[in-house]
């Protein structure tokens, strides 16, 4: 019987699962390992090189001067602490806003309006990062809406926290909504039967149960804020975050930029590892 080459290849693949797996994995892994991990590796390596102050040429001599600089220079410490503070602030603001919203959506609203509210909360995600940062630039500017209505804090750290909280709010609402929706009624009823008022039930029963979701949301708000550097350029006035320091070092002092970029990466990895035991990873 005559067999076409396609059928022969199909047969060969069918008989060898290992070959199928290799064929499936080769292209994605080649891309990610070569294009991505390779680039990250080069970046990490270059953090241990230096730039000649006079020629701006990278000198390929293995040393840890860049890291020593970051640790000793108070400017880097201030910027790192400010960035960390902004990221924590954004996470707290988003948590405070998202908890009642998600609770209302999942447990109070009628089932019919639930879906609509879910769409209403997620829809702004599609409007785009720059559009939303720009919207807050308009809101916060002098002579703008906020100035006219209640007064504006102007451009600076508070404006950065407001804008970043706005950008990442849906990422906090979504996991919380899913967690609230999954709460079994029986637990809440039991708490009420035992005499707990709603607030007590919320604090002692609901909150511990949705904690993994809260942490999952905070992974987004925290990491996304740590690495940000455009919002702060738009609404931050002269405020500098780690991202700005990295961006300004890229062309003239790549080794330093590489070393500084290790700071947010280490903070993010540290946070991810710290919360791994709470089961937050499964809620992402």
């Amino acid at each position: 019987m005559h067999r076409s080459p396609v059928r022969r290849l199909a047969g060969a693949l069918h008989r060898r699962p290992g070959l199928r797996l290799t064929a499936l994995l080769s292209a994605p892994m080649a891309w990610l390992v070569l294009a991505y991990l390779g680039s990250l590796g080069v970046l990490l390596l270059s953090a241990f090189w230096t730039t000649n102050d006079f020629t701006s040429q990278v000198e390929y001599v293995w040393n840890t001067d860049n890291f020593a600089n970051i640790l000793s220079d108070p400017v880097y410490r201030t910027v790192a602490l400010r960035t960390l503070g902004i990221a924590v602030g954004v996470t707290v603001v988003d948590g405070a806003l998202a908890l009642p919203m998600a609770f209302y959506m999942a447990r109070v609203a009628r089932p019919r309006s639930r879906r609509l509210l879910l769409v209403a909360v997620t829809a702004p995600l599609w409007a785009g990062y720059l559009v939303k940062a720009y919207a807050w630039w308009v809101m916060l500017s002098h002579g703008g809406v906020l100035d006219w209505a209640v007064g504006t804090p102007g451009f600076g750290v508070p404006a950065v926290v407001i804008t970043l909280s706005y950008l990442w709010l849906p990422y906090m609402v979504l996991p919380l909504y899913a967690a609230f929706a999954q709460l079994p009624d029986s637990v809440l009823d039991a708490s009420a039967d035992l005499g707990a008022r709603p607030w007590r039930t919320f604090r002692s029963v609901v909150l511990p149960l949705v904690k993994p979701a809260l942490i999952a949301g905070s992974i987004f708000t925290f990491s996304l804020s740590l690495g940000d550097y455009l919002t702060v350029q738009i609404v931050g006035g002269t405020t500098q975050m780690l991202g700005n320091v990295i961006a300004s070092d890229v062309t003239l002092n790549l080794p330093m930029a590489a070393a500084v970029s290790c700071v947010p990466v280490l903070l993010i990895v540290g946070y991810l590892l710290a919360v791994r035991r709470t089961g937050a990873w499964e809620n992402l």
Binding site: Y36, S39, L40, L43, G227, I246, A247, V250, V265
Partner: peptide, 27 residues
């Protein structure tokens, strides 16, 4: 490790991915 590698580009700050690719493309 494969799943982790896939998530990494979106988990790390955009600027880190950006300057890493920039340096790699240049070289």
């Amino acid at each position: 490790a494969v799943s982790f590698l896939l998530i990494l580009p979106i988990a790390l700050p955009g600027i880190v991915t950006g300057i890493a690719l920039n340096a790699a493309f240049r070289t």
